[in-house]
Design a binder for these strands. Structure first.
Lengths: 122, 122
DNA sequence: ACTTCCCTTGACGCCGGTGTCAACGTTTAC
DNA sequence: GTAAACGTTGACACCGGCGTCAAGGGAAGT
């Protein structure tokens, strides 16, 4: 299939697909006229990429998952490298949550000080 | 005092101070040679701005606090507009935390599915 | 042949606060 | 007098994923 169909089937824009390719996550064969030609496997790759981006992964973070699928695994997460990224990502999310909780407390404290009568939700 | 001293006393770079001015948060008188001239009040304003930026406020969010200080209040947070920003900010932080908790759950679920034996901290 | 849609590459814009450099004037200390 | 340190404005770079436009070639139906 060509890029337009892949875009339609995955929800990615053609711009995004070319961007993924530019960063080495996709490799498309070319028709004699230069058009990119994709396979069903590419649909799976792009679907995996988009699912990971949607939960906050960077594009770079998706690389081990793509490689894992390419090696024939049924899910991108079933390789050691992917599991490492999962766990690192969990740690990062936890760290961000801690930062936000700290900020929340600081802001609430400042508000309480500036406006003693104000009720702080939460 | 001139911009270098203000920078040293507040921890802001001179670049940042000019940026704040460019966005209307600071107004400096000028010496005949064009040098910016600051007062002790400016030290308080910049200190307030930096404290708010440090807890995640955007520069625009600090404007009501600066205005509040300029009107002679002892703290930037003791005006109605500032209190509104405090509360909106708390809501935003809470929303971000909810998003992160949701992502954390999704990532943990995907990890558990890909790697049933993996222990998920938290 | 003409229209219309799809494809190609290349490049700029965004967002926000700041680093950094250029090219130049001022002040200060020796 | 001169060097060092400080000031001025203006502009580009960053980060990351993508929108969007430009300028062109290919495909396909009437």
């Amino acid at each position: 299939m060509r890029i337009g169909e892949l875009a339609e089937r995955t929800g990615a824009s053609t711009r995004s697909l070319r961007y993924y390719e530019q960063h080495g996550l996709l490799q498309a064969r070319r028709d004699p006229n230069g058009y990119r030609q994709y396979t069903e496997e590419d649909v799976r790759l792009v679907t995996e990429i988009r699912a990971l981006l949607a939960v906050g992964f960077s594009l770079e973070d998706t690389r081990p998952f793509v490689d894992c699928l390419r090696r024939g695994h049924s899910t991108g997460g079933s390789c050691a490298e992917s599991v490492e990224v999962y766990q690192r990502k969990l740690d990062e999310i936890d760290a961000e949550i801690r930062v936000l909780l700290g900020r929340r407390a600081e802001v609430a404290a400042q508000l309480a000080e500036s406006c003693p009568g104000c009720f702080v939700r939460g």
